[in-house]
Simulated scan of single mutants.
Amino acid sequence: MDTLEIVVLAILQGLTEFLPISSSAHLILPSRLFGWDDQGLAFDVAVHVGTLAAVIIYFRKDIQQLVTRWCVTGWTRNPDSDARLAWYVILATIPAGLAGLLLESWIEENLRSTLVIAITTIGFGLLLGYSDIVRKERLTLANMTLMIALVIGLAQMIALIPGTSRSGITMTAALLLGLHRVDAARFSFLLSIPLILAAGGLKTLELLQSVAPVDWQALGLGVLISAISAWVCIYYFLAFISRIGMLPFVVYRLLLGGILLLFFV
């Protein structure tokens, strides 16, 4: 990979990991437009490390509070709101984790096509728009329930289908269930931590078993750029989502899906 490829792909990964616009669709475009080769396993590990670092750094105080309260009251009969939220993140992660272990290979072989990605980019974009229009913002993270967390966790399983967008489908479910926009986004970002950690860990194991040479300078640049772009994405998304809503992302998804259908299918 040359420097331009590293910069473009790392920025795309950092942004699309957390924006509700589908990372799969964006990682297809550069290869189709410029004839770039697949970035490879080592680079996948690097950008996962970068996005994980970004979300942990941004939510470091929240994570510290959740872990502390989970250790103190999480195992009692009356856990406080932070301990409950920690449990919700853990339990909501399980469905997607199990589905990933069981179905990832099948999905990679059967659903990772441009047509599927274009259709899901458009379809789930429309669903995201619908959820934002009919939302009834009555819940925050402090008073959400276990059932709501589990439904969001089940929705996260759908993100295994390329083009869906993990952040997009979890925010869609959260909005339909009554969470405020900012709380829907925060819960989605917190949910990403164990999944990115698990995915990055599995890819790291694969990398360690590989005999292919590794360009450590390229990987370091990928980590740095994906971390910066992901942090900037989280910061500005949370700062403006209550005002701009989901419409800009819905329109963007429709345009992106249309471009894929017209020119690459």
Results as ranks from 00 to 15, higher is better:
Val7Glu: 05
Leu177Met: 09
Glu109Phe: 11
Tyr130Asp: 00
Ala25Cys: 03
Ala184Pro: 09
Glu109Tyr: 13
Ala198Trp: 03
Leu254Trp: 02
Ser22Val: 03
Leu247Met: 15
Trp87Phe: 02
Leu238Asn: 13
Leu205Ile: 10
Gly129Gln: 01
Leu247Ser: 15
Leu179Trp: 07
Ala83Phe: 01
Pro213Lys: 04
Phe264Gly: 01
Glu17Gly: 09
Leu190Ser: 10
Leu9Arg: 08
Ile259Trp: 08
Gln65His: 14
Ala173Pro: 07
Leu115Gly: 07
Leu9Tyr: 06
Asp183Phe: 05
Phe59Cys: 08
Gly258Glu: 05
Val232Met: 14
Ile57Asp: 04
Gly257Val: 08
Ser192Phe: 15
Leu98Glu: 03
Ala10Phe: 05
Arg32Ile: 04
Asp183Trp: 04
Ile6Ser: 04
Phe237Ile: 12
Gly40Cys: 07
Gly257His: 10
Leu29Ile: 15
Ala46Gln: 07
Gly200Leu: 13
Gly178Glu: 05
Leu191Met: 15
His26Trp: 04
Val49Met: 14
Ile28Leu: 15
Val89Pro: 01
Ser192Met: 15
Met157Lys: 11
Glu109Ile: 11
Val134Ser: 04
Gly129Asn: 00
Ala99Ile: 12
Leu195Glu: 09
Val265His: 12
Asp132Ile: 10
Val182Thr: 15
Ile259Ser: 08
Gly40Ile: 02
Ile244Pro: 10
Ile196Ala: 08
Leu29Asp: 12
Leu160Lys: 04
Leu33Ile: 09
Tyr58Ser: 01
Thr51Ile: 08
Arg84Lys: 12
Glu5Thr: 11
Ser210Thr: 06
Leu27Gln: 07
Val211Ser: 15
Gly258Phe: 09
Glu108Val: 07
Trp75Asn: 02
Pro20Met: 01
Ile152Lys: 04
Tyr88Asn: 01
Pro162Leu: 05
Leu15Pro: 06
Met246Lys: 01
Ile193Trp: 10
Pro20Arg: 01
Leu12Gly: 01
His26Pro: 05
Leu85Asp: 02
His26Glu: 03
Asp2Leu: 02
Ser24Lys: 11
Ala184Cys: 10
Met171Pro: 08
Leu128Glu: 01
Thr114Lys: 03
Ile259Met: 13
Asn78Arg: 11
Gly168Tyr: 08
Gly14Arg: 06
Lys61Tyr: 00
Ile56Met: 05
Ile152Phe: 05
Tyr58Glu: 00
Tyr58His: 03
Trp75Glu: 00
Ala92Asn: 01
Thr68Arg: 14
Glu108Met: 09
Gly125Thr: 02
Ser131Val: 03
Gly97Arg: 14
Ile90Cys: 08
Leu33Tyr: 05
Glu5Phe: 08
Ile117Asp: 00
Ala46Phe: 04
Gly129Cys: 03
Gln156Pro: 05
Gly40Thr: 02
Ile107Trp: 07
Met246Ala: 09
Leu219Trp: 07
Ile152Pro: 02
Leu103Trp: 10
